[in-house]
Write a protein that binds this DNA or RNA. Structure first.
Lengths: 206, 206
DNA sequence: CGCGAAACTGACACGCGTGTCAGCAGGCGG
DNA sequence: CCGCCTGCTGACACGCGTGTCAGTTTCGCG
């Protein structure tokens, strides 16, 4: 096996191990065992566990960026928003291992690891917050702090994806979940009158 | 210092340490140093690190349960929902250490710890999903899978609280954030026409 | 006082995962 | 068939945090 093949193999196996045991609990021994390789070999290709992790994250982030398309305001907006949501969900659901890694592991043991993970979320949150601020200028996003909207949105999607992956869903479920997320961001789900009313909520006439 | 005082003191210090370093990264040495006590003393009061953690979580969960009141359908509903949201936010924001612990730490290193943390979320998610299903029967919650709504809601609030605590907010911010969450669950924030339209969204007549 | 109980101490042995490094294939060109 | 290069090996020493336990201090009561 040549250098490039071996490297790729190690990356793949490491991803599986991280997904299965969690980054912190994963030992180098787990990775080399999965790859059928001796301890020393691993260190010929990566500095340490974090080295593999960073490469995996970088590759995934690139794909995430590519899956989000800028809204073209001269064309109908809703389908573009729906498609963006669907594509993001699809990307995560198609790579369940990376989804588990990104949504399950938490900071605390390795400050470099922490920084990496935090940087991922900062990028995503800023990207979204900026888009929402633009959307407000175009009057397609309600008034309010766009960063707060970004937190709520990212949090909602994180939890949904986490649960979806836990329950064994795959990319085939992306369109269905996407519709639910879209509907949620579009109307919320509480059907309550604006002002306190005496009677229980009554369907407003369409 | 008598037994009860010492125990409480250790719990308090441990909570601070967990919040600061994260559960997994926290060492017994950090806790005993914070408490000004020798290593052996710690083990006179708790079996191990997880023992302290479980007690902290149990105490907090009790308070969380108390802060959520059942909706009384014979009274106006919206203020009750708003107040529930506000009280939950307030509880978390008032105990920033526990908030960090519950929202920052992840499973992976200690399977007993994992179970505990997972059980917390399962309880919260089921509670919410059941309430939402009841809400659907009362026509105050939109149709759709109540578990999905629960995931979206819990995820959104987790992320918001995490960011709020990171940014140093306190219980005083609960009412403001509560209003934003309520508005979000009530209408969402996307102002897009239902069907693709040529013109930008127009306010439907109230 | 003096004595027993309660609270506390901290050096130590242990387990566990890491990173290293001196050395072992084996294929290939000369 | 030798020498070399590329790829691989795995025993080992090390650092770190844990849990223990034989021993010390402090308290309060008779």
């Amino acid at each position: 096996m040549n250098r490039e093949e071996r490297r790729t193999q190690l990356l793949t196996r490491a991803r599986e191990v991280f997904a299965k045991r969690g980054y912190h609990a994963a030992r180098i021994d787990d990775i080399i065992e999965a790859a059928g390789v001796a301890r020393g070999t691993f260190y010929l290709y990566f500095d340490d566990k974090r080295g593999v992790f960073e490469e995996l994250v970088d590759r995934f982030l690139t794909r995430l960026h590519l899956s989000i398309l800028r809204i073209d305001v001269t064309a109908p907006v809703p389908p573009q928003v729906r498609e963006n949501i669907r594509r993001v969900l699809e990307l995560f659901l198609a790579d369940r291992a990376m989804t588990k890694i990104l949504l399950t592991d938490a900071p605390g043991l390795d400050s470099e690891f922490d920084r990496k993970l935090k940087s991922v979320y900062d990028v995503v949150l800023s990207l979204l917050a900026d888009s929402l601020a633009e959307g407000q200028a175009l009057a397609i996003v309600a008034d309010g702090d766009p960063r707060v909207y970004a937190y709520l949105t990212v949090g909602a999607m994180k939890e949904l994806l986490y649960q979806a992956v836990q329950q064994g869903m795959g990319e085939a479920d992306a369109p269905r979940l996407g519709e639910q997320v879209y509907a949620f961001l579009r109307h919320g789900y509480l059907k309550l009158p604006e002002r306190p009313a005496r009677a229980p909520a009554r369907k407003p006439r369409a």
